[in-house]
Deep mutational scan, measured.
Amino acid sequence: HDTTVHINGLRIEVHGASEEILKWIEEAARRGVEAEEIKRWVEEALK
Rank of each mutant, 00 (worst) to 15 (best):
G32A: 03
A17E: 02
E34R: 12
K39S: 07
W24N: 01
L22V: 06
L46W: 08
G9D: 06
A28L: 14
T4C: 12
L10N: 05
R31F: 12
E20D: 10
E44R: 14
V14S: 03
G9E: 04
H6G: 04
E43P: 00
E27C: 12
W24D: 00
A28K: 02
E26R: 15
G32D: 02
K39T: 05
R30N: 11
L46S: 02
E13P: 09
L46K: 02
H1N: 12
T4L: 08
E26A: 14
I12E: 01
R11P: 09
I21R: 00
L10T: 11
R40M: 07
G16W: 07
H15E: 11
K47V: 09
E37C: 06
I21S: 01
A17K: 03
N8V: 05
L22T: 02
T3V: 14
V33G: 02
E19L: 14
T4Y: 10
S18Q: 03
E44I: 11
L22H: 03
S18E: 03
R31T: 09
G16S: 06
V5W: 02
A35R: 03
L10S: 05
W41N: 01
I21C: 04
R31L: 11
G32M: 04
I38Y: 02
W24T: 01
G16N: 09
E27G: 04
R40S: 06
V33L: 12
E27Q: 10
E20P: 04
G9S: 03
H15G: 13
V33K: 03
D2K: 14
L22F: 08
G16I: 05
V42H: 00
R30Y: 12
R11F: 09
T3R: 08
N8F: 01
R30C: 05
H15S: 11
E43W: 13
V5G: 03
A35I: 12
I25R: 00
R31G: 06
E27H: 07
V5C: 09
K39W: 11
A45I: 10
I7R: 01
I12K: 01
H1S: 13
L22W: 11
L46F: 07
W41H: 07
A28P: 00
K23T: 08
I38T: 00
I38R: 00
R11E: 11
A35P: 11
T4A: 14
W41P: 00
E44D: 09
K23S: 09
E19V: 13
E19H: 12
G9K: 03
E20K: 08
R40C: 03
E26Y: 15
E34G: 13
A29P: 01
T3W: 08
G9Y: 01
E36C: 11
V5L: 12
I25V: 08
A35V: 10
S18V: 06
N8H: 06
W41L: 06
K47R: 13
K23M: 11
G32S: 02
G16K: 05
H1T: 12
V5A: 03
N8W: 01
V14L: 13
A17S: 06
S18D: 07
E19Y: 15
I7D: 03
W41D: 00
L22D: 01
I12P: 01
E26V: 15
G32L: 04
T3A: 11
A35F: 14
G32K: 02
N8D: 12
A45Y: 14
N8C: 08
G16E: 06
V42T: 03
H6D: 10
I25P: 00
A29C: 08
A28F: 14
E44G: 08
H1W: 13
H6A: 07
N8A: 09
E26Q: 14
R30V: 10
A45V: 09
K23P: 00
L10G: 05
G32W: 04
T3C: 05
R11D: 11
E20A: 13
A45D: 01
E44Y: 14
E26K: 13
T4G: 09
A29W: 15
R11H: 13
A29T: 10
I25N: 00
K23D: 05
E37K: 09
S18K: 05
H15A: 14
